[in-house]
Design a protein around this nucleic acid. Sequence first.
DNA 1: CTCAGTGTAAAACGATCACTTTACATGTAC
DNA 2: GTACATGTAAAGTGATCGTTTTACACTGAG
Lengths: 179, 179
Amino acid sequence: MDIRTRLISTAEQLFDRHGFTATGMDRLTQAAGISSRTLYKHVGSKNGLMAAVLNERDRRFHRRINADSVDALFGALETWFAEEGARGCLFLRAWGETGGSVPEIVEVMARHKERLRQRIDDIVVAEIGHRDDELTEAILLLFEGATHAATYRGGAAVEGARRAARRLIEGARTQGLSS
Amino acid sequence: MDIRTRLISTAEQLFDRHGFTATGMDRLTQAAGISSRTLYKHVGSKNGLMAAVLNERDRRFHRRINADSVDALFGALETWFAEEGARGCLFLRAWGETGGSVPEIVEVMARHKERLRQRIDDIVVAEIGHRDDELTEAILLLFEGATHAATYRGGAAVEGARRAARRLIEGARTQGLSS
DNA sequence: CTCAGTGTAAAACGATCACTTTACATGTAC
DNA sequence: GTACATGTAAAGTGATCGTTTTACACTGAG
């Protein structure tokens, strides 16, 4: 495996399991099996590594939740949690640990969340035939809530979110959401 | 003001704004205006301080969202964010930064989340006249989603959650949620 | 008067932090 | 065959980590 790939996926695991600040560079280089000199050649700094990890996670996450229905969306989220564990949104966590003061991290988080909104917007159109911002917002909030709650309640949270989302979709289909 | 109270509220602010691990004890003692010896007499360790902060926040939070309707619940959340800022659930953040390996923190978070569920359960009964676990779960997820999303989208997230919750309540009132 | 309790200031603890440097081994390309 | 890019190991940078210790001041109660 490519050195950079190995570094970033190792870092993602350690950051996710133990936190960003709590994970030192020594532990990182040791786990990835590379020298610290090589690490700094590749990512420049710890903040650079964090940003690189989040960028890669963004790509992987959106590839995995590439769904065209609410059921498929929450199904994909459930699979993600089953395979990767649920420890809260890694973007929010990075943002919180750095106090929102690292521009690279703020940027990648904004991009990630914007993509999520667009994906759900597309799903809403596929489900009810036209855009509906209020419905998109509701499903997005359920999605975020499930991500949040799965940390302490496990996969059941996703099932609850899916059911609520389906109900809102049905309501919008039969009478319009603004009735 | 009592020394312990001052210490804990100072620590809550610093932890919330800059992260738990990133906030050192020197910065803490300096901001609270006490010596490190006194700090350790009062809370024993940094983990002890974190747990004490979360306990106090739990008390304060539940006193503030003591509502008996969905509107009042989300109204209280919006006020909370306006006054204290929205930087994500401090319990989840503490849990994430410690990798879930500090028992005192795991406990206080579990208690906090359980209380939140009970509060919403009561609200559901007040709104539709009987318990409805699925509806409670849905509103809880919207509440968590709003907490989560307000970090990067501001108070508008709370308004979206309130609207979706009201819609689900109305649905449950007219036809029952299990229709 | 004294003693216990509670506070301060400041130094010291070894460990670890993010990061850099020095010195050396590769393989590949011109 | 020499120059360059890319890697390693390992020591060193000064700063900061959480925590403990030493030495001293103040206060209220017996």
